[in-house]
Amino acid sequence: MISKEEVQNLATLARLELAPAEVESLQKDISNILEYVGQVSAVSIDGAEPKAPMLRNVLRDDAAREAGDTMAGKEARVKEAFPKREGEYNVVRKIIQKDE
């Protein structure tokens, strides 16, 4: 079973605040699920170089979006969705701070 510390560390990585009871239930759930999905570790990937699996890059033309484009003219709605707004700006917490 994965430890409480591991669960707590994952929660930090995932930016999730967990209640103490949830740490315990997640310990159990994640361990059970990992035990089941652990079957995949038996898959052999010897020999072959890890190949690019049927994937390729798809790039759009470097062209300005036209008036009929889905996102054209939607700035107002995007701004309306901001949780905290001042005029034209999305208000966020100060991120860059001076090291003490």
Partner: peptide, 29 residues
């Protein structure tokens, strides 16, 4: 929350190859 935690686990350093890498290989197969 459970799935975000699980996803964070399988992608984290040290487990990536055992879970995500293998799952991709099995997906191709």
């Amino acid at each position: 929350r459970r799935r975000i935690m699980l996803g964070t686990y399988v992608l984290s350093a040290g487990y990536y190859d055992a879970y995500y890498g293998k799952a991709l290989a099995a997906r191709d197969k």
